[in-house]
C-alpha cells in the first residue's frame, strides 16, 4: 500500500520536474537559423562540387593528365584535351562533370598534383531537371572570368 502511494507521488513529481525543464527552455533564446533569410557561411573545407582553378591569366591549371578521371569512383569526370602544334603542354578543351553521380568524396581533388581543381562552396543546388547537373567546368570558369 505504501509503495502504491509513493509510486504515485514520485511519478507525479517526475512529471513536474520534466515540465520545469521545458518551462526553462521556453524562455531560452532560439537557436535556429532562419534559412532562406539567413545563411551560414560554409567552412573552408566544405566539399561542394568541383571547380577548375585558373592561373593568373585565367587559363585553367589543368594539364589533362587524367588522374582525376581515373581516381573518381563514380566516373563522373570526362576530360578532353589536345596538344596544340608546338606547345609543351596539353590544353584542356573540355572538363565535364556529371554531378548526378558525384558522391563528393574528394578523390579527384586529392589525386590532382597540379592544383587544378578545388571544391566550390556552393550548396544551393536544386533543380527538377537532370541536365542541370551536368556541368561544363571549362565554361563555368570562362563565365567566372568574364
Amino acid at each position: 500500500m505504501g509503495a502504491y502511494f509513493s509510486g504515485i507521488f514520485s511519478g507525479l513529481w517526475s512529471l513536474f520536474v520534466g515540465m520545469g525543464i521545458t518551462f526553462r527552455e521556453f524562455f531560452s533564446p532560439t537557436v535556429t537559423v532562419q534559412y532562406p533569410y539567413e545563411t551560414l557561411k560554409m567552412t573552408a573545407r566544405y566539399r561542394g562540387h568541383i571547380e577548375l582553378i585558373a592561373d593568373e591569366e585565367g587559363k585553367p591549371n589543368c594539364v589533362v593528365c587524367g588522374m582525376c578521371e581515373k581516381a573518381c569512383p563514380s566516373s563522373c569526370i570526362t576530360l578532353a584535351g589536345e596538344k596544340p602544334e608546338g606547345a609543351k603542354k596539353k590544353v584542356l578543351t573540355g572538363y565535364h562533370l556529371d554531378f548526378t553521380k558525384c558522391s563528393l568524396c574528394g578523390s579527384c581533388v586529392e589525386s590532382c598534383n597540379f592544383n587544378a581543381i578545388e571544391f566550390s562552396r556552393e550548396y544551393n543546388l536544386a533543380s527538377t531537371r537532370k541536365e542541370d547537373f551536368h556541368f561544363d567546368l571549362l565554361q563555368r570558369l570562362k563565365d567566372r572570368n568574364s
Binding site: 521545458t22 527552455e25 521556453f26 524562455f27 531560452s28 533564446p29 532560439t30 537557436v31 535556429t32 532562419q34
Partner: peptide
C-alpha cells in the same frame, strides 16, 4: 508557437 519556443525555434 509554444512548441517552437519550448524547442528553441521561432
Amino acid at each position: 508557437r509554444g512548441a517552437a519556443r519550448i524547442q528553441r525555434r521561432p
